[in-house]
Simulated scan of single mutants.
Amino acid sequence: MLSPLTVSAKSDVSADNTMADFKRLKLAIEQAVADFEKTPMNEFSYRVTRYENEEGTETSSVEAFSPQTSEANQWSLLQKNQRAPTFEEQQAFASQKQNQHSHTVVKLSELIVFDSLTTKVVTDSAVHADFDVQFERLGANTSSYLKGTLVYDVNNKFITTIDITNTESFSPVFAATIDKLEVTMSFTKQQEIILPLNINMSMQGRFAFLSKINETSSDSYSNFRYVGPADSHSTTRESAK
């Protein structure tokens, strides 16, 4: 029979191993985020298919980015609402893109509170973890109403999906109340490069007790092709489908 001292010692070792494993996992997730944010999106050509439904009004577009052209012409509007865009729409699109300084909606390192990470499910191939959210775009006081989950691919060492939902209604701006928020982001890894796949958002609520807020949107990325310097990311020149 094991003595109480022996049992206690074994428990301490188990707890130490568990803590060490968690620290390694946390560092791995932080590294996966850093790897994604190091992706040189301005060295890839790609397409973005966008869809938005705002209170029943639907809009869509297909956009293309190519770093091989002059900076003012790197973005092209290929389709607007499932048709060829007008000259005025192309001009408005070009003006909008000139004021856009980032290829992604939000930096993951500014979204995930890493110290709050807790594991839900751990398998040989994936880790499901919860985390607290900091989302300044929705207001400094809204983060306490949001919760996030992520799935980390253990074998390929990247985050495959991130989901953000609200835990209760919140007010990001005066007179507006959000009752339901769902954001899903998915990613893929081609060679050693982590690339965005989809960003989906659904939001429901009310404004000034009179009108409803009911919005959905999706951004889908495709046709990735590396066109940067020949000596950089040489293994990523194949299209990412």
Rank of each mutant, 00 (worst) to 15 (best):
K23S: 15
L25R: 07
A28L: 02
A28C: 06
I29E: 04
A32C: 07
D35R: 05
M41P: 00
M41I: 12
F44K: 08
F44L: 12
Y46W: 10
V48L: 11
R50F: 13
E52L: 14
N53Y: 05
E55C: 13
G56A: 13
G56S: 09
T57S: 10
E58Q: 14
E58V: 15
E58C: 11
S61T: 05
V62M: 06
V62C: 07
A64N: 11
S66D: 15
P67Q: 12
P67S: 08
P67A: 11
P67K: 10
Q68S: 14
T69L: 14
S70R: 14
S70N: 14
E71V: 15
A72R: 11
A72V: 14
N73V: 08
Q74M: 10
W75V: 04
S76R: 14
L77R: 06
L77N: 08
L78I: 15
Q79V: 06
K80W: 13
K80F: 14
A84H: 07
T86A: 11
T86M: 11
E88Q: 13
Q90R: 15
F93C: 02
F93I: 01
S95K: 11
Q98R: 09
Q98T: 04
Q100E: 14
Q100L: 05
Q100K: 12
H101L: 04
H101I: 02
H101F: 09
H101K: 11
H101A: 06
S102G: 03
H103M: 11
V105R: 09
V106P: 00
V106L: 08
K107I: 07
K107R: 12
K107F: 06
L108I: 04
S109F: 02
S109P: 04
E110C: 02
L111H: 01
I112Y: 00
V113H: 04
V113I: 10
D115F: 01
T119K: 07
T119C: 06
V121D: 05
V122M: 05
V122D: 08
T123G: 06
T123Y: 03
A126T: 12
A126V: 10
A126E: 11
V127K: 05
D130K: 01
D130S: 04
D130Y: 01
D132N: 05
D132C: 00
V133L: 00
Q134L: 03
E136S: 11
R137W: 02
L138K: 00
L138S: 02
N141G: 08
T142K: 00
S144Q: 09
